[in-house]
Amino acid sequence: MMKKIFLVLTLLLNATVFADSDVAVPKDELATETVYPIFDQAKSVRNRNVQTTGRIDVGLFGGLALTEPIANTTKFGIAANYHFNEYHSLGLFYVSNSSGLSKDAEGLKNDFGLDFSRAPQPKSMIMFDYNYKPYYGKMSFTKNGVINTTIYGSTALGVIQYQHKTYPALAVGVGERFYFNKSFSLKTDLRLFVHQAPIPFKSNVLCDGSKVSCGSNGAAGDPIPTYDSFSERITYTTNLEIGVNYLF
């Protein structure tokens, strides 16, 4: 039967007809439906460009504490994640906070003589980071290339170290990775950190004496407090992180 079909074709189609200039797709071949074909398993993507299952990715990133009023808002970190499958991964990240004060705190020092460097500052943090990656997609800006992307939710648990003490910390957030090829990606994370932290706003201890108007001791300034003397409370900080990752 098959032999017959192919032989008939060979005889019938002796003339080749094909578009010989620019190929224009006939309108009747263009999509008219937005529904999906039915398969046994309705997987939205097959043969993914970026396959993370069983792979480790390592990345470097920089962060900005968007709601931090006193301490330096910039930080840098390193992260590593193991991807159990295309949906779940578990990793570890370490963040080192930049030393010094935020611009606002610097302003307060210059204008009012309030020296917030007397208050304890966060130095670093280390956390286990679980990611759930429900969304995988692709986009094209120029039509010359395709960028694959994943959007994920993150939950991290670990510790944050201040100059005098270490506190447990929890972070929840969302992130997105943009893959420039099958391994290299740009990563952004928005995380909300929750942890116990010293309150830097303490009266009669912050005046450095540079402004007479500050504090009761005038030019002598307030005595330097011990870090332990600052009271503590639950603190919420929103962080934006941007980095690069490589899948091994």
């Binding site: 999509a31 999906y36 309705a42 993507v45 097959r46 043969n47 460009n49 094209s140 039509k143 010359n144």
Partner: peptide, 18 residues
């Protein structure tokens, strides 16, 4: 697919089949 134009890299999407 009539709406978008991508270089094909071997990745197949359900909405693109056909």
């Amino acid at each position: 697919n009539g709406f978008e134009y991508y270089p094909f890299q071997g990745e197949y999407w359900l909405d693109e089949v056909g």
